[in-house]
Write a protein that binds this DNA or RNA. Sequence first.
RNA 1: GGCCCGUUCGUCUAGUCGGUUAGGACGCCAGGUUUUCAUCCUGGAAAUCAGGGGUUCGAAUCCCCUACGGGCUACCA
Length: 528
Amino acid sequence: MIKTYFRNLDSQKKIKPIRMKQENIRVRFAPSPTGPLHIGGVRTALYNYLFARKMGGKLILRIEDTDQNRFVPGAEQYILESLNWCGILFDEDVVQGGPYAPYRQSERSEIYKEYIRILLEKGHAYYAFDTEAELELRREKAKAEGRGAFQYDFRSRVLMQNALTLSEAEVASRIKSGHPYVIRIKIPENETIHLRDMIRGEVRVHTANLDDKVLFKSDGLPTYHLANVVDDYLMKITHVIRGEEWLPSAPLHVLLYRFFGWEGVMPQFAHLPLILKPDGNGKLSKRDGDRLGFPVFPIEWKDPKTKEIYAGFRETGYIPEAFINILVHLGWNPGTEQELFSMEELIAQFSLNRIGKSGSKFDPEKAKWFNHQYLSHKTDDVLLSLLAPQLEQHGVSASPEYMIKVIHLIKERVNLLPDLWNNSWFFFIPPKTYNEQVKSKIWRSTTAGLIAAFATEAENLSEFNHDTVHTLVENFTQKNQVKMGQLMNPLRLLIVGSNQGPGMMDIAGTLGKTEFLTRIRNGLSNLN
RNA sequence: GGCCCGUUCGUCUAGUCGGUUAGGACGCCAGGUUUUCAUCCUGGAAAUCAGGGGUUCGAAUCCCCUACGGGCUACCA
């Protein structure tokens, strides 16, 4: 079966359709351990995962830690734990290894040296000795003269300190004497690079707009561009699914594949739209979470330097299925009206050609709704296992049977995990305070007497459950010529402490006669 | 500044070969259910498809221009 992924049909004549059922699909998620992964990163990992599973391929996790300056301790562990919580599993990674190990770029530095040598030999890369200060000066000057940004390219490289301007002997002696250098790619002067993106169609960039990017830094490690292309090649990656921020440098990567002679096995590119701030515009960032009151990270992150704590979806009370569902819809849709998916369903239905092109804003409200959907459809056993630790946390214990009873009464009211306790605590402990606002609204001069009379009658009930209390309430209100609300609302205030919770009969029946009457009597004396 | 990408209800989006009362979901509003608060049910408001030009009998859909938004422009990824 052949399906085309391309959306720009005007250019389809030039583009060969891609076979969907391709053998040996291999994709990778390649984060940099420079801090916590935010939801954009998780979504990229998710799409890679879904695509790999859907196609019967493999998913690789590769740690791109070639920048020693930005390395953050704990970040790699955080990435592993986050993705694991989400249920995004890898076939090859830094922990379990794999046929193309190592999967940490810092452990592959010898490999990159080999490959940069090839580029040097072929004349596609060259040594450059310009210092940071010199380059900075150029940038400032260019800016001051209003020429736009300085670019190290075919126009300017002839003016710089590099192997193209210096004699061979000079270059050799500098290197020999330990003079710091970088290695830059030599971008062709006049050519249009065609890039086929599975989401965006054909993208063309003229090489005059590209600069001679550093491929190899003076610290002996490669930059992203080199390491990424070399590793994707060596690890036999077939599809590069990554964020849109990489689109501008994709032509550079195409050029690298060509220079290495790997054009025939170059992966397909799919550049994902960005996740934007919920308010205003711009890419979602670390600070937005605290500012807007929702997490932007999958799990809690403690900054090792500043000791600051950033909230995570997990700790806020989201369950992985919901979190995954929230993320998958930020840019992808199934084309049907189905909104709730299991991971299996997502795998079955996912396809890259249903990913949109425009950035999407994260909606915290809808996120809660998703969580509510999943939580309220959980089985009793699962909900029990979620509620039990919360009781323990509050120093309360109850039998599983009792907890299940409670769960039946509150499961529809839960958005986030902590709502389990927040909506049920009064089944386990009596209220310590009584909501003043509610009291002032419902409490009348006759109320206390009415409640006391009701309590006396309730005491005489031989069977105390939902139905008998219900009958009693009906008879009592009729006999005393009061409306339901006049009795029930104050009763609720005494039992629960406010105007919330499931039906009063249910609460009464669950609590039992003794506890029910105790709370009424204590409440009555506290309120008067 | 330059280069690249994008633009359908407030938000996520359907609309992939041009003809739809532009559909769904969240949120919002109203009504119903309920003794309360939620849930739930029903209904409603909400997009002149960024704007302007074309092409066409007919354009959200194809072409061009403009505007706006975003990304990139490091010896960071």
